[in-house]
C-alpha cells in the first residue's frame, strides 16, 4: 500500500437487492488533499460514502484507512478520527435543539456511551461556531436558520470532531455565496493542516478552483487523479452521458 494514501478502497461492490449501485470500485484518497467526487444523480456517490463509513454493507470489497502510525485499520477502529457531514436534507430541522447543541454533537463520538459533554467540549463547540461565522446564533433554534447557515452548522459539528478525515456529502448544494466562501476557506485550512478532505460535489464550474484531486463516478470509477490531469470535457461527457447498462437503471 502506498504510504501517501489515507484511504484505500479495494474492489468495492454495493447493491440494493439485485441492483448494483457500485461495481468493483478501487480508489485511493491522498492524505493532505482535497478530492472532489463527481457524477450524475444516482451514480452511487452517496452510497460510496456510506460504504466508507460502514453505514451500508458492501457485497464485496473493503475500505481501509491509515491511522497516525500508518497502520491500515478499518473504519470502526478509526471512527473518531473521521468526520462525516451528511446532506443537510437528511435531518429534521424542526427538532427542538439549538445551534450550540448540534455543534456539540460533534464531540459525542469522543465521549462514547453514557458520558456527558464537559466544559472542554463546550469550549471546542464554541470555537468551531466562531470559525463558521455563526457565534451569535448559538442559542437559536435550528429551524430559524437559512440553508447556508444550516450547512455551516453541520461543518462546525464536523470540525468539533477534530478528525483527520472529513467526508462531506454535497456541502455546497443550495448554499449562498458567503457560505460557500466560508466552507471552502475552512476546508482549505484543513488540507493545509494535512487532513484528508473528500467532498461530493455537483458544480463542475468550480472543480478546478477548489480541488486538488477528482474522482469521476458512475457506478464504476470512470477516472481518478489530479484535477489538472484528469478534469477534461471528454471525461465529464463520459461520466454524465454514459448509458447505465448494468441492471435496469432508473
Amino acid at each position: 500500500m502506498k504510504k501517501e494514501s489515507a484511504i484505500q478502497i479495494d474492489k468495492l461492490t454495493v447493491a440494493y437487492e439485485a441492483q448494483p449501485v457500485l461495481l468493483n470500485i478501487s480508489l485511493a484518497f491522498k492524505k493532505g488533499k482535497m478530492t472532489a467526487i463527481v457524477g450524475p444523480n444516482g451514480a452511487g456517490k452517496s452510497t460510496m460514502i456510506k460504504a466508507m463509513l460502514g453505514l451500508v454493507e458492501p457485497v464485496t470489497g473493503e475500505v481501509v484507512y491509515q491511522d497516525v502510525d500508518q497502520e491500515a485499520v478499518s473504519y470502526k477502529e478509526l471512527k473518531n478520527r473521521i468526520a462525516y457531514v451528511p446532506q443537510n436534507t437528511s435531518v429534521d430541522w424542526d427538532f427542538p435543539t439549538t445551534v450550540r447543541d448540534v455543534v456539540l454533537m460533534g464531540r459525542y463520538g469522543h465521549l462514547g456511551w453514557f458520558k456527558r459533554p464537559k466544559n472542554k467540549d463546550r469550549e471546542i463547540a464554541r470555537q468551531m461556531l466562531l470559525k463558521v461565522g455563526l457565534p451569535s446564533f448559538a442559542s437559536r433554534q435550528i429551524s430559524q436558520l437559512s440553508g447556508g447557515q444550516r450547512q455551516r452548522v453541520f461543518l462546525a459539528r464536523a470540525l468539533a470532531q477534530e478528525a483527520d478525515v472529513y467526508i462531506m456529502d454535497e456541502p455546497l448544494a443550495g448554499v449562498d455565496m458567503k457560505t460557500e466562501h466560508i466552507i471552502m476557506k475552512l476546508l482549505k485550512q484543513l488540507v493545509a493542516e494535512g487532513k484528508t478532505v473528500l467532498v461530493v460535489h455537483h458544480d463542475l464550474q468550480t472543480v478546478e478552483e477548489y480541488f486538488d484531486d477528482i474522482v469521476f463516478i458512475n457506478q464504476e470509477v470512470i477516472a481518478a487523479g489530479p484535477v489538472d490531469e484528469t478534469f477534461d470535457k471528454q471525461t465529464v461527457k463520459k461520466t454524465y452521458h454514459r448509458d447505465r447498462n448494468l441492471g435496469e437503471g432508473e
Binding site: 453505514l55 462525516y84 437528511s90 454533537m105
Partner: peptide, 16 residues
C-alpha cells in the same frame, strides 16, 4: 445524549 443524536440525525449517529 444517545436518544437525542439517534433521533435527530441517525446517519451521523451511526457513523459515530
Amino acid at each position: 445524549k444517545e436518544l437525542k443524536i439517534t433521533t435527530f440525525d441517525p446517519a451521523f449517529a451511526a457513523a459515530l
